[in-house]
Every structure is written in C-alpha cells, then in structure tokens.
C-alpha cells in the first residue's frame, strides 16, 4: 500500500473570506453604534404615540429631564425632587445666560416614564415655568404598529 508522505501537506485554511465577513460585520456595527444613547435613562420607559416623529433638526439648548416612575427627576445624571429641581434649572440658566440667550430660547425635554403620575410631570413644568422656561417637548416613542 502506498502511503502519502505527510510532510507536503501543510493544512492551511484560507482565512480571506472569514476576514472579509468579520470586517463587514465590524463596519456594520460601527456605523450603527449610537453614542447618543447617553440621553436615555434605564429607569425611563417612554409612552408610545403614533404621531411623534424623530425631529429633523436638533432642538436649541436642550435640557433633558428624566422623570422616573416614583417621581424622581434626573438631570445630567443627578437625582432631584420637585423641591430641589430649581437648583438644576439655575445651573442650566447660568449656562444659557453666559451664551447671551434667554430662558425662552431653551427647550426643556421631558422624558417621563409611562407610569409616572401626570401630576408629577405637571409639577416639573410648573417649576420650569417659574424659571421663565417656555418651550417644552414631551418625548414619546414612535409607535409604528
């Protein structure tokens, strides 16, 4: 019986197609990665609405407020209550005034959890109104069903 010499058989896998695919996958995920997720908060599940559409242009001077189901308000990673929320607004106001704008130019974006008491959201709006904010955006998830 003739036995082939094993010496010549260097088992080599052709890696090119795999690398092609892997690079494609990396490119796909890199393009889709969304760093603006920092705007979201894990505790907040937005209500759904069929009417909302993603804004075509970014809002001017956005101040993002997250309202958790228990009524806690999160601004810039820090938790506030209705009574202490004014501190957060004052901080934002000083930034707005430093840029020579008025509070009425700023947009207060309210991302409230769907089970939050509506009164808590109203209180947030009331505190903001006392600080001379005028423009509010009630954020909701786009419902495509």
């Amino acid at each position: 019986m003739r036995i082939k010499s094993r010496k010549d058989e260097v088992s080599e896998i052709d890696l090119t197609p795999m690398i092609d695919m892997v690079f494609n996958l990396i490119a796909f995920f890199m393009v889709l990665i969304n760093f603006s997720q920092s705007e979201a908060n894990d505790r907040v599940v937005l209500p759904k609405s069929v009417l909302v559409k993603p804004p075509e242009e970014a809002l001017e001077f956005p101040i993002v407020l997250h309202v958790a189901p228990d009524g806690e308000i999160i601004v810039g990673g820090e938790g506030y209550t209705i009574d202490t929320l004014r501190i957060a607004f004052n901080r934002e106001l000083s930034v707005i005034e430093a840029e020579g704008k008025k509070p009425a130019d700023a947009n207060v974006i309210i991302r409230a959890h769907k089970d939050t008491a509506a009164g808590d959201v109203q209180e947030v709006i009331r505190v903001a109104q006392e600080q001379k904010f005028e423009r509010f955006a009630l954020r909701a998830k786009e419902d495509r069903s």
């Binding site: 559409k53 109104q129 009630l138």
Partner: peptide, 14 residues
C-alpha cells in the same frame, strides 16, 4: 437598537 423618539412641542409661558 435605537428606538425612534419624537416630541410633542408645547409652548407654555407662565
């Protein structure tokens, strides 16, 4: 997966 979000703009001066 980024969820599409949008706003209801409300202008409410005091």
């Amino acid at each position: 997966i980024a969820e599409m979000e949008g706003d209801f703009s409300v202008r409410m001066p005091l």
